[in-house]
C-alpha cells in the first residue's frame, strides 16, 4: 500500500513534467513560454487535485485545499492593505506615508479622527492575544452598530415598504371585448388575460405566503386555507430555486472542463 502511494506520486510528477514539456514545446499547436506552460500545467493539476475528491478524500485534494486557504487569506489581506489602508487611511494620517506610497496626501482639520479606526483596528487584533481578547468587543460593537444603523432604514424602505407597495397591483383589466381579452396569451407577451392572471397570483401569493409565516395564530379555518395556498406558492418558489441552483452548479463544472479542454489539452478551439 505504501509503495502504491509513492508510485502514484511518481506518476503524477512524471505526468506533470510531460505536460509541462509538451506545452512548452508547442505540442498543442500553441507557442507557450516555459513559464506559461508551467502555469497552465499547474492550474490543470490543481483542478484535477480538487476533482480527485469525487473518488475519495486523498492527499492531493488536501494539498490543494490547504494551498487554497493560505493563498486566499493572503489575497484578501493584500487587497485590503493596498486599496483601503494605503488608498484611504494613509493619505489622511501621514504626508510621509502618502509620499512613500505615491498616493496624494489629503490634509484636513478633522483628520485626527482617523485615529479612531486605527485604535479600534488594533483592538480587533487583540483577539489574537490570550489576555486582551475582551478588548476586541469595542471594534466589534462599532461593526455591529454600523451594520444595524445602515440596515435599519434600507431594509425598511426597500424590502418592506416598497415590496408591499409593489404588491398592490390592478387585479382586473379594462374590458374591451373577448377578442382583446384573449389576445397575446403567450405568458411572456403580457396580454390582458396573462396580466390579470400574473397580478392575481402575485397578490394572492404574497398575501398567503405572509399568512403562512404568521405563527401567532393557529392555522385553521380560512386562515389555514390561506396558509395552505401560501405553502404551495412557496413550494413553486423552492422548485424554481432548485432549478436555478442546478443550472448554476452545472455551469461551474462546464467552466472547469472548458479550461481543461481549451487551455490545457488544447482539444477545443
Amino acid at each position: 500500500m505504501k509503495n502504491l502511494k509513492w508510485f502514484v506520486l511518481a506518476a503524477v510528477c512524471i505526468l506533470f513534467a510531460v505536460s509541462w514539456f509538451a506545452k512548452a514545446s508547442g505540442g498543442d499547436g500553441v507557442d507557450n513560454s516555459v513559464l506559461d506552460a508551467f502555469l497552465v500545467t499547474l492550474a490543470a493539476f490543481l483542478t484535477l487535485a480538487i476533482m480527485s475528491f469525487l473518488y475519495q478524500d486523498n492527499p492531493y485534494y488536501k494539498f490543494a485545499e490547504h494551498l487554497f486557504v493560505g493563498v486566499s487569506a493572503a489575497y484578501w489581506m493584500c487587497l485590503g492593505f493596498w486599496s483601503t489602508v494605503v488608498g484611504n487611511l494613509f493619505p489622511r494620517i501621514s504626508e510621509g506615508l502618502s509620499n512613500f506610497f505615491l498616493v496624494p496626501y489629503q490634509p484636513g482639520p478633522l483628520n485626527f479622527f482617523f485615529a479612531i479606526p486605527i485604535i479600534l483596528g488594533i483592538l480587533l487584533l487583540m483577539r489574537l492575544s490570550p489576555k486582551g481578547g475582551w478588548l476586541s468587543r469595542w471594534p466589534l460593537a462599532f461593526i455591529v452598530g454600523t451594520t444595524a444603523g445602515l440596515n435599519f432604514v434600507r431594509y425598511l424602505r426597500s424590502d418592506f415598504v416598497k415590496q408591499i407597495s409593489s404588491t398592490f397591483v390592478p387585479l382586473v383589466v379594462d374590458w374591451q371585448g373577448f377578442g382583446h381579452f384573449f389576445s397575446n396569451i403567450s405568458l411572456t407577451a403580457g396580454g390582458p388575460l396573462v396580466m390579470m392572471l400574473t397580478n392575481l397570483v402575485i397578490f394572492i401569493g404574497v398575501f398567503c405566503g405572509i399568512v403562512y409565516f404568521f405563527f401567532s395564530k393557529e392555522h385553521t379555518g380560512v386562515f389555514g386555507k390561506a396558509s395552505r395556498v401560501g405553502i404551495w406558492i412557496l413550494m413553486i418558489t423552492f422548485g424554481a430555486s432548485f432549478g436555478y441552483t442546478v443550472m448554476g452548479r452545472i455551469s461551474l463544472l462546464v467552466g472547469r472542463l472548458t479550461f481543461l479542454f481549451t487551455d490545457w489539452l488544447g482539444i477545443i478551439g
Binding site: D159, V201, G205, V206, I210, I233, I236, T237
Partner: peptide, 22 residues
C-alpha cells in the same frame, strides 16, 4: 409570478426581521 410572490413573502419576513434585530 409565483416565484416572485413567494420570494417577496420571504423578503418581507426577512426585512422585518432585520429591522427588528437592528
Amino acid at each position: 409570478s409565483p416565484n416572485m410572490a413567494g420570494q417577496r413573502a420571504i423578503m418581507i419576513g426577512i426585512g422585518l426581521g432585520v429591522v427588528s434585530m437592528s
